[in-house]
Amino acid sequence: MSLSSNDIERIAHLARIAVTPSDVHDVEAKLTGIFRLIEEMRAVDTQGVAPMTHGLDMTLALRPDAVTEPDRREALLANAPASEAGHFLVPKVIE
């Protein structure tokens, strides 16, 4: 499989990562190499095999639907790049 510059631009947009025109070719070349590696597994016959995510096949734990988090607004806003009046600040999104 080989990726085109268009593919790279499309994926980069989906991933919300700006890729400069000068980077596209390097990214394309390296990703194509990696996908060549990945392709090895696509041909394996896995019909009837159930996918696995956890070796012990555990079921996800449930917990009571209760409020457990204390109010830590100040502490959590301390790392924000921009905040105002107790809120995260972002560029205007609604005209």
Binding site: L3, A15, V27, R42, V49, M52, T53
Partner: peptide
């Protein structure tokens, strides 16, 4: 690079061919 690979294999129409297939290989 890894975010881009991940975005691609999870993008529309590719899930079964990649992530699901990899999950089956994990079991094998």
């Amino acid at each position: 690079r890894r975010i881009l690979i991940g975005t691609y294999v999870l993008s529309h129409g590719y899930y079964d061919a990649y992530y699901l297939q990899a999950g089956k290989l994990r079991r094998l």
